[in-house]
Design a protein around this nucleic acid. Structure first.
Length: 783
DNA sequence: CAGTGAGCGAGCTTCCGCTTGACTT
């Protein structure tokens, strides 16, 4: 008979704990939640005080029966799921589903996985906190109601298969509103004045001193007037101010900060970071990677300290205990840190190594001393002017934590590296080499990256460490948001330069506004957002989650019943859903751009059945409307009348060849030529508006030649099998199924019999879609 | 695999948070 059975959430954790405890303990894992609301239908009994209908999902049946068996054989069962709302609910679901007995079931919690912590937990068991469980039930039921009542409204009013929810809809809102801010942004320019002076360094060698004017000028005239003044002015050192400053290290990583830093420093996507971190966790190299806590265990503090002493010395040590300030944090785990602080690197893939080193540096740095700096500012007086130039220099007096790690920032402001300034004396005269007034423009707000969106969501208390990555996938899978790049725009700017006695006036050009891997809203994303915002402003409110969290806290403290809290919400929410279903219009996001100068009919853009379209004329008119699809890089929100009119110039007849028309158009996969029922892609270098008949024939001939080379041989009496050259090398096809050719086989020598042999050996490769992300995984779970 | 843009109106889609697999190209 088994003496003690401990159940935790994660199998890796189970493995670690089992090592700490003796033979009397067996540790199993529940793999997270073991049951959930029924997937079919809403899964809530509205007639019966919102009674949730819980079901063990098919992929959890096996683990539940294994756990049930184990609990029957155990003397004492210890429920050791995390100490937060979800963890408490997991414990309760286990208790309920496994039909455990109060007499021999104990609830324990620990925040760090050390022998002491676990032994201590076992010595201090408690019972399941049903109020906390109820807070989780309220959370779960609220999310189900919001998601499963709002989504069908979208199916009816916008497009089937769409979705809405407490978290995802607000995430989309952030992106849509940022895009509109960018569209409406009007850059303002000002003139920044900088000067280069001649002076001497400590050894008497001539050096340049760069300084910037404390004042920016809003107009060219003012800037010019100032330079005129400088022409005959004297420059002298007015004062020298030296100030000591300090820099402190950032706290250790949480899920959100790890995702941000891995994106900035390593270029990882949010989901990539989580996958790599998961592998590090499973191989025991780091602590748990889904956490909102910046707390480090005593063990981690001690081993970090020892590591810093041996690496840099006692004076680099500064033990720090950080406090989590994040809204709604539940702190069931430690911060993300290396399991063993003395391992500076690990074995593994390049990605694993890089991410581990990042985590190691961040953790170690968080326990190191402040960096001490000395900032020197030299103020330079300009005779006859109220303004002064300032030269700044910064010197590191003691590097402290900077020895290992410096946090990155998102803003790409031109941070000029400031070093040591030359030794100067107060009152010393300075000779200017040149003084430049350069026109600068205010910056558009940046689009969100995956990681900066996570940071914003965390700041608003929306979503949890385990859902940041999936949420970002969802809003992209629903096609509300697209990840993409934006090429730079050229912009002219003005430079006035005083050199010697002459002021020159130049126009220069710069690239601006380039963005990489940023989140853009789609037309459908904007239409859905505007619709939800109009009819369900409460749900879309940035404070909605924070407000319901307060409600959940009250439930957890036993101040209110969870069902009455849900009742209050539902009685308000449901009638709005009904009303919107009945009384709102279908949403197509139509925008009228003006009139078509040729026909004089109205030109509008809207979302059609297959995506965004432009339309000349209206359905009410006798003459049927004419349609054209928008290009992928265009949006309903920002397209102009001129751009829309361009779209109707395609398809364009470019002439005929072999007695048939050649037409150029743009399809889903880009521009193409259509000729005699066949399609020929247009290379990127060809402009579909410019292609001539000669060029089109060239492309057609080239494609046919390629086609010819594609077929290596045809086999079988009726040519059932074709051996072909494909993008990934040779292969053969039969009945529309493709088969691999084994390495080392010359495809030209394949016979019909040999192919049939190969076909029998290769099971029909299932043409399933990608399994990653929510959709594929779900489809599989259902089977 | 690209062209469409309308209605007989079947049956389907969907949430957020816990946790790991097993899929090929």
């Amino acid at each position: 008979m088994l003496k003690n059975l401990i159940i935790v959430e994660s199998p890796s954790k189970a493995k670690t704990i089992e090592k700490f405890l003796g033979k009397d303990y067996h540790v199993m894992s529940s793999f997270g939640h073991i049951r959930d609301l029924a997937e079919k239908g809403i899964g809530i009994d509205f007639e019966n005080d919102y009674q949730p209908q819980y079901i063990v999902s098919s992929d959890k049946k096996k683990i539940v029966s294994e756990l049930k068996k184990a609990t029957k054989d155990a003397e004492v069962i210890w429920l050791a799921s995390d100490e937060d709302r979800e963890g408490e609910a997991i414990a309760w679901h286990l208790f309920d589903e496994l039909k455990l007995n109060k007499d021999n079931t104990k609830r324990i919690v620990f925040h760090e996985i050390t022998k002491d912590a676990i032994v201590n937990a076992i010595e201090n068991p408690r019972t399941i906190d049903i109020n906390l469980v109820d807070a989780q039930q309220a959370r779960r039921v609220l999310d189900r109601i919001v998601g499963f009542e709002l989504s069908p409204v979208l199916w009816r009013k916008v497009r089937p298969s769409l979705s809405a929810g407490r978290v995802q809809s607000v995430a989309v809102r952030l992106i849509v509103e940022r895009e509109r801010e960018i569209n409406q942004f009007i850059p303002e320019s000002s003139y920044r004045v900088s000067a280069i002076f001649n002076t001497k360094d400590v050894n008497g060698q001539p050096v340049e001193l760069k300084a910037e004017l404390s004042q920016r000028f809003s107009s060219k005239d003012e800037a010019n007037a100032f330079l005129e003044k400088c022409r005959n002015a004297n420059f002298s050192v007015d004062s020298i101010v030296t100030k000591p400053t300090r820099k402190s290290p950032a706290p250790p990583f949480t899920t959100s900060t790890l995702q941000q830093e891995a994106a900035r420093k390593l270029g990882f996507s949010v989901s990539q970071t989580m996958m790599v971190a998961q592998r590090l966790y499973e191989s025991g190299k780091i602590t748990y990677m889904r956490t909102d806590s910046v707390n480090l265990s005593e063990l981690a503090l001690n081993t970090s300290k020892a590591e810093i002493i041996s690496m840099a010395g006692q004076n680099y040590v500064h033990t720090r205990r950080f406090n989590t300030k994040t809204k709604g944090a539940q702190e069931a785990h430690e911060a993300i840190r290396p399991t063993y602080m003395n391992a500076h690197t690990v074995e593994g893939t390049a990605q694993e190594k890089k991410l581990y080193e990042l985590i190691w540096k961040r953790t170690i740095a968080s326990q190191m001393a402040d960096a001490e700096l000395e900032k020197t500012s030299v103020y330079i007086h300009v005779s006859g002017s109220q303004y002064q130039f300032v030269a700044t220099g910064e010197v590191i007096v003691f590097d402290g934590f900077l020895k290992v790690y410096l946090e990155s920032t998102d803003d790409e402001s031109d941070a000029e590296s400031e070093g040591l300034l030359p030794a100067l004396l107060q009152g010393e005269g300075l000779a200017p080499i040149e003084i430049t007034a350069q026109q600068r423009f205010s910056q558009k707000p940046p689009r969100y990256s995956e990681a900066s969106l996570v940071r914003k969501l965390e700041e608003l208390g929306i979503g949890r460490p385990s859902t940041y990555a999936p949420t970002i996938s969802t809003i992209q899978n629903r096609n509300y948001v697209e990840k993409g790049d934006r090429v730079a725009d050229k912009r002219d700017y003005n430079v006035l330069k005083l050199k010697g006695d002459k002021i020159t006036d130049q126009i220069k050009s710069e690239n601006t506004g380039a963005e990489k891997s940023k989140l853009f809203p789609t037309d459908i994303g904007m239409v859905v957002n505007d619709f939800l915002l109009e009819y369900f402003p409460d749900i879309m409110n940035y404070n909605f989650t924070a407000d319901v969290e307060k409600e959940f806290d009250n439930i957890a403290e036993g101040k209110i019943k969870w069902t009455s809290s849900i009742d209050k919400f539902y009685k308000h929410f449901h009638p709005i859903v009904e009303d919107t279903m009945k009384n709102s219009e279908r949403q197509v996001g139509e925008r009228i751009l003006g009139t078509d100068p040729v026909s004089g009919r109205q030109l509008a853009v809207k979302i059609g059945r297959f995506g965004p379209i432009a339309q000349i004329g209206t359905a009410e008119e006798e003459e049927k409307p004419v349609f054209a699809s928008l290009r992928r890089d265009q949006s309903i929100e920002s397209i102009t009348l001129e751009e829309a009119l361009e779209l109707f110039k395609l398809p364009r007849n470019v002439g005929d060849y072999e007695g048939k028309d050649m037409t150029v158009a743009i399809g889903r996969f880009g521009p193409y030529i259509r000729h005699n029922g066949a399609f020929y892609s247009l290379p990127k270098t060809d402009d579909p508006m410019e292609v001539t008949a000669e060029r089109a024939i060239e492309i057609i001939v080239a494609k046919r030649e390629e086609e010819k080379n594609r077929i290596i041989s045809t086999l079988g009496e009726n040519a059932e099998i074709q051996v072909l050259n494909g993008r990934f090398g040779p292969y053969f096809t039969c009945d529309k199924v493709n088969y691999k050719i084994p390495k080392g086989t010359d495809p030209a020598t394949l016979t019909f019999e040999k192919c049939q042999e190969l076909m029998a050996a290769q099971p029909e490769a299932g043409t399933k879609k990608k399994a990653f992300g929510g959709k594929g995984a779900k489809a599989k779970a259902k089977k």
